[in-house]
Simulated scan of single mutants.
Amino acid sequence: MTLDGYFEGASPWSLDFHTVVWGEELEAYSLEQLDEVGTLLFGRRTFNGMAEHWSNETGAIADRMNAVEKFVATREGRAAEWSNSRILHGDISEHVAELKAADDKKDIFVFGSADLTATLLKREAVDEIRLCLVPIVLGGGNPLFRDDGIRKGFRLLEARPFKSGGVLLRYARSET
């Protein structure tokens, strides 16, 4: 996320600023994080973009992204055509509660998916937020957090600076 709060530029998949912080440290963290994932949860647009990208990639991150269980929250009835993927219809917060309750589940991660994240935050279905703050001001784009008039409180769990200038921030949900 940029210093001014955007996770993508003005057009969909405008992510060139991510290269500013990408390097060995963030790659190692990405692999570490993917080892914690039991399930990935996406909105339809993010799912389509991630599927298109990762289905054609190779390497350790691609192997994990392609192997992990994935769900896509969508109102569309189309199939999820990425490996180990399924469609979720209906109330997403109920689906998340069911996924959390499963004994064999590791963590559920949402990558990107600002609209889905906004819905989950509104329904208090988010336990932790992880951001990599990129030292860039875009001046416009797609904000990660929506202006919905609802206050949300978080407490800092970790702040990890990277040599690239990026900072990993981990927050747990707390009372406001």
Score class of each variant (00 low, 15 high):
Leu88Asn: 10
Phe71Ala: 12
Asp107Thr: 09
Leu26Met: 08
Gly90Leu: 05
Leu34Trp: 05
Pro143Ala: 08
Ile61Asp: 01
Ala79Arg: 08
Gln33Ala: 13
Asp104Ile: 00
Arg75Thr: 13
Glu69Asp: 07
Leu40His: 07
Phe145Pro: 06
Trp54Ala: 07
Leu138Val: 08
Leu40Pro: 02
Val21Met: 05
Ala62Glu: 09
Leu40Tyr: 15
Val37Pro: 03
Val126Asn: 04
Ala60Leu: 13
Glu36Ile: 02
Gly140Asp: 06
His53Lys: 05
Gly38Ser: 00
Lys106Gln: 14
Ser55Glu: 08
Leu138Asp: 10
Thr19Cys: 05
Arg130Gly: 15
Val96Lys: 05
Asp35His: 09
Glu52Val: 02
Glu94Ile: 07
Lys105Glu: 11
Val96Arg: 06
Glu32Ser: 11
His89Asn: 14
Tyr29Trp: 11
Phe17Leu: 02
Asp103His: 05
Ile136Glu: 13
Leu138Met: 12
Ile136Val: 15
Gly140Pro: 09
Ser85Cys: 07
Val68Gly: 01
Ala67Thr: 11
Glu57Trp: 00
Thr117Glu: 01
Leu144Glu: 06
Asp147Gln: 14
Gly140Trp: 06
Lys106Pro: 12
Asp107Phe: 10
Asn66Val: 08
Ser85Asp: 08
Leu41Ala: 04
Lys122Ser: 13
Ser85Pro: 09
Asp147Val: 07
Met65Phe: 14
Ser113Phe: 09
Ala73Asn: 12
Gly139Val: 02
Val68Ile: 15
Arg123Asp: 15
His53Ala: 13
Val37Gly: 02
Lys106Phe: 00
Gly23Ala: 04
Asp103Tyr: 00
Ala60Tyr: 05
Ser55His: 03
Ala73Arg: 07
Gly38His: 02
Thr46Gln: 07
Ala28Phe: 04
Thr74Gln: 08
Ala62Asn: 08
Leu116Met: 03
Met65Tyr: 09
Ala62Phe: 09
Gly43Val: 06
Gly112Leu: 04
Gly49Asp: 10
Lys100Ser: 08
Ile136Pro: 00
Gly59Ala: 06
Ala73Pro: 03
Asn48Trp: 04
Thr58Glu: 15
Trp82Val: 10
Gly139Met: 00
Gly77Asp: 14
Ala62Val: 11
Leu34His: 09
Glu124Ser: 13
Trp22Cys: 01
Lys122Trp: 02
Lys105Cys: 11
Asn84Cys: 05
Arg45His: 14
Phe145Arg: 04
Glu52Pro: 03
Met50Asn: 04
Ile136Thr: 09
Lys122His: 11
Ser55Asn: 14
Val20Ser: 03
Glu24Trp: 01
Asn66His: 11
Ile108Gly: 02
His53Cys: 08
Arg123Leu: 13
Lys105Leu: 03
Leu31Phe: 05
Glu25Phe: 01
Arg64Thr: 06
Thr58Val: 05
Val37Ile: 13
Glu128Gln: 14
Asn84Ile: 00
Tyr29Arg: 01
Arg146Met: 12
Lys100Ile: 04
Phe109Met: 12
Leu133Lys: 08
Asn56Glu: 13
Asp103Arg: 06
Asp148Thr: 09
Val20Leu: 15
Trp54Tyr: 09
Ser30Leu: 10
Asn56Trp: 06
Leu88Cys: 13
Thr46Val: 11
Gly23Met: 05
Val72Thr: 11
Ile108Met: 00
Leu34Pro: 00
Asp35Arg: 12
Asn142Thr: 15
Asp104Tyr: 00
Ala118Asp: 15
Phe71Lys: 10
Ala51His: 03
Glu36Asp: 12
Phe145Tyr: 14
Asn84Val: 01
Ile92Tyr: 05
